[in-house]
């Protein structure tokens, strides 16, 4: 379990992480989502003691990272898959991890196998690795000590769709065995595929957090009828606030059952009735982080 309490980091007067608190639970994959420059990497570096926090604490299984007697046995960390000496071979990087942590040398072959790196590839220098191979090697290095907690910064970066699926299955399996996973991404799609819980961060602050199911729920309901006017009237009668989406369907924060009941009571024919899923979460992501986005043209109005 990772517990973050009121963690803040300021450089001079510039606050990059402000008062963030959340918990990544065991058995769950927690997605740390935010646009580039939102403070995800700084937060993760503070969790593992590479950056000193200005205020607040981060603990892993109740202890500060620096107080862990053999951190690699309890927390697997991958902050940047490319941050390795380019002249070392992949196998050597795993061997160093295995030696420092004091685990059997058989772990190296096991982990290479787990992340599907061949013996040939393990003998090559990481300077010649593709980004996807570096990510796999980084995951392997994080897992050498058989830790109960994983902290991964942008692990899906550079993976092809099959690779992302592979990582999802691997992390799912890991969490199902009781592991705690915290992974960051600036891509909602990745987080949606992999995570159970989502912590969204923008401009150094947490803008929302909860289980993926809750957040999808919070995205509301989408309803469509060939007779838009009648549908709006029926919703108005039931006291349900709606927004007309560009495609003519209506979106509301009200529960899906209540929306269906209101349409039924008003005798309106429906052609679509569903929870606003990925699109809704994406809208929320873009809306919540709109003022932090560098590319303002990606902004979309929701309301």
């Amino acid at each position: 379990m990772i517990t973050i309490e009121a963690l803040s980091k300021a450089y001079g007067g510039n606050t990059v992480v402000q008062d963030i608190s959340f918990t990544a639970r065991s058995g769950r994959v927690t997605g740390f989502l935010g646009p580039n420059g939102a403070g995800k990497s700084t937060s993760m570096r503070m969790m593992v003691g590479l950056t000193a926090p200005t205020r607040g604490t981060a603990t892993i299984n109740g202890r500060r990272f620096a107080d862990l007697p053999n951190p690699g046995r309890e927390v697997g960390v991958m902050l940047d898959a490319s941050a390795q000496h380019a002249g070392r071979t992949g196998g050597e990087i795993l061997t160093i991890a295995q030696r420092v942590m004091g685990v059997p040398s058989s772990r190296v072959a096991e982990l290479l196998d787990l992340v599907s790196l061949t013996g040939d590839e393990a003998d090559r220098r990481v300077g010649n690795y593709s980004l996807g191979m570096r990510q796999r090697l980084g995951i392997a290095a994080a897992l050498v000590g058989d830790p109960g907690v994983l902290i991964l910064d942008e692990p899906a970066n550079g993976l092809d769709p099959a690779g992302i699926r592979w990582m999802r299955d691997l992390l799912r399996d890991y969490a199902d065995h009781g592991g705690t996973v915290l992974l960051s991404s600036h891509l909602l799609g990745e987080i949606e595929i992999i995570a159970d819980d989502i912590v969204m961060i923008g401009q150094g602050r947490i803008v929302c957090q909860g289980s993926k199911a809750e957040l999808l729920q919070a995205a509301g309901t989408v309803v469509r009828s060939p007779d838009v006017a009648a549908l709006r009237e029926a919703m108005g009668t039931a006291g349900i606030q709606v927004t007309v989406l560009p495609d003519g369907s209506l979106r509301t924060d009200t529960d899906i059952a209540d929306v269906g009941r209101a349409a039924y009571d008003g005798g309106v024919l429906l052609t679509e009735l569903r929870t606003a899923d990925s699109g809704g979460l994406e809208d929320m992501f873009l809306e919540l982080t709109a003022d932090t986005q560098r590319d303002t043209h990606t902004e979309r109005s929701v309301a």
């Binding site: 007697p69 053999n70 046995r73 309890e74 420092v100 942590m101 004091g102 685990v103 059997p104 772990r107 096991e110 982990l111 196998d113 787990l114 599907s116 061949t118 897992l143 000590g145 058989d146 830790p147 109960g148 099959a162 690779g163 592979w166 299955d169 691997l170 992390l171 399996d173 890991y174 199902d176 065995h177 009781g178 592991g179």
Partner: peptide, 22 residues
């Protein structure tokens, strides 16, 4: 992508022995 093997990513803890200071 080669086929996954029987090795699991999940934490098994006890298998690698006690956690002692380095």
């Amino acid at each position: 992508m080669s086929a996954m093997t029987t090795t699991t990513a999940g934490p098994t803890r006890a298998r690698l022995g006690e956690i002692a200071p380095i």
